[in-house]
Design a protein around this nucleic acid. Structure first.
Lengths: 341, 341
DNA sequence: TTGTATGCGTTATCAG
DNA sequence: CTGATAACGCATACAA
């Protein structure tokens, strides 16, 4: 609870001098600096960040607005990996992170801008917002430096970090095509996710370039959940027995499809090939181990924080960074064997 | 960037009145309150948390000091689950969380107390610190309200939240004993972890109560890592072929033991039974699915934040909360079949 | 019911 | 090299 005032009284120097001495200004003699530092030590002084932030207009704090840090997403360490990356990067530059805990309920109470301004964060990283999220427009209107994760929008003070969703989705489907699959279905997430849109485009591109005509009905939304994906896959497999492969927009949904195959008595990959997306830690333990698109979420977070801090230093470097995903071949894909044979 | 001063000028009321009106004091007429609120709205005013915190000596902020939010622990969503629980609980009471990003490197630069005082957090939750961590003593010396996770220490302003490690470890071993195992080895974490100590005690109690004499050499440390556990298990299985079961202090180490069994050509659970601890999401996908002790880490985090916020309201309710774990039976344990048969 | 004056702990401006 | 003094934005005891 000691303040510079206490140090001032103890040493006899003015508040000003104490402040300058402690902050390493050069226009204070080494002898007084030594005295002051000793006094600070003996009083176990620590500067008050609030007071400092109030006058300096800089808090060395990054805001983190994450949809999905709640009970239902607990299995999705996706969010956590990003968080670790952000954390490590911020730590290197002496920033601390503040987690805005915003339920969807509270989202209506406090706007994005209010949240940030109250806490006086220097910048914000946004993760998990949807296209129809009201926050999104606010971000663009606001003057707070912001980095979006997986939303390719850019402006004066908003940048983004993402991965090449379209290309890697395309690569996943091309892998299936190369194996000989022609009747390929897709389980997507939900329309409000940017990534869903991009992954769908990748699917379409791959199919079109291969000259395969695909049915609109074969592309369905699985809400990024295992259950819904399983449900949709069963429906699809019943209605269209000719389907030999699934491309899923997430590993958990791929797991749902695996279960659907089990439910239908279809072997994987013997009678049904499945590709996922994400490469969650569990994917390698699936039965069979899942062929999937690997995303380096840690690096994504790391780069997001890096980009934001560069923006704060008003370096006018590029305001976006798109990382490359990687197709990981495991055992859930194989040549097609029509199940009526 | 609008302040109450701006509102004051716009409406003609004094700063005081504006402040009181906005904060819902009763001694301001409804008509002026309405005027002031409208002005605030039109200026899109948000209060400055720094200024407020400076005078109120309360920031509505909880500090979070987590060892292990870094790259190497990324597979361990343990930390994440706790975080989600804390987050949800804090959100319900309008607290925000600040993540102290402290490398072990920086740990020497800034003390625990400095970290907290600079940020003026109202209280702190500590996770993942070891018994020999210098921060631990600081916590006890400091006057900042604090809740420890999985460290049973308590004082005027520090409480803790944990699970019944000893009893549940005991239950795990008793399960093995009930199946008929007598030669049971244990892979523990490391000595500096409180939980390791407690889980070890549970092991000892179960063995002693069953009248089984166990060898000190059969209890080894696996550093909570898959690799080290595998290494140690292989060593143990080579030296003591009579071992028929392993109790592991974490699921990842149990996985290491499964791999050790594979390496040695032993079937699980046919020739070797294995029990883990944690119930990570992956455990159910192990080959075979892992019998383990399930910890509800989300709830642990939730209760930690709850406890801390109760302490902040200086309610003198109990300062500790010990949750109960649950033995989850899957397929990695069975009756012993001596491998020479 | 409203306004005046003061302080929270810092940094910054400008004199000495 | 050092020291008054004024901000920063807000809340509160005390007057009116």
């Amino acid at each position: 609870m000691a303040t510079i005032k206490d140090i001032s009284q103890l040493t006899g120097f003015s508040i000003t001098t104490v402040s300058r001495a402690l902050n390493g200004y050069s226009d204070v003699s080494e002898s007084t600096r030594k005295l002051i530092k000793e006094a600070a030590e003996s009083l176990s002084y620590s500067p008050n960040g609030l007071a400092r932030g109030l006058v300096m207009k800089e808090t060395k704090t990054l805001g983190l607005l994450v949809s999905g840090m709640t009970y239902k997403n607990i299995d999705n360490n996706f969010v956590f990996e990003v968080l670790c990356g952000i954390n490590d990067s911020a730590a290197n530059s002496d920033y601390d992170l503040i987690l805005f805990s915003t339920n969807t309920a509270k989202q209506k109470m406090k706007t994005y801008t209010q949240l940030c301004r109250e806490r006086k964060v220097d910048g914000v990283i946004l993760q998990g917002v949807k296209t129809d999220d009201p926050y999104l427009q606010e971000v663009l209107d606001s003057d707070i430096p912001c980095v979006l994760i997986d939303i390719p929008i850019q402006s004066e003070n908003v940048g983004y970090v993402s991965t090449n969703h379209k290309e890697s989705a395309q690569a996943a489907v091309e892998h299936l095509i190369r194996l000989g699959h022609q009747k390929i279905a897709m389980i997507n997430g939900y329309p409000e996710a940017f990534v869903s849109k991009e992954r769908f485009e990748g699917f379409v591109t791959a199919m079109d370039q291969a000259g395969l005509n695909w049915k609109r009905e074969w592309v369905v939304n699985g809400d990024f959940t295992e259950e819904e994906a399983q449900h949709q896959a069963v429906k699809l497999l019943r209605a269209y027995p000719e389907i030999t492969a699934f491309f899923c927009a997430s590993d958990m949904m791929a797991l749902g499809v695996i279960k659907a195959a089990n439910e239908m008595g279809l072997s994987v990959p013997g009678q049904l090939s499945i590709v996922g997306f994400d490469d969650i830690p569990t994917a390698v333990y699936f039965q069979p181990p899942l062929t999937t698109i690997g995303q380096n979420m840690y690096q994504l977070g790391y780069e997001a924080a890096n980009l934001l801090m560069r923006m704060l230093k008003s370096e006018d470097s590029p305001k976006s960074n798109v990382l490359r995903n990687e197709l990981i071949l495991r055992s859930s894909t194989d040549k097609p064997h029509h199940r009526n044979i």
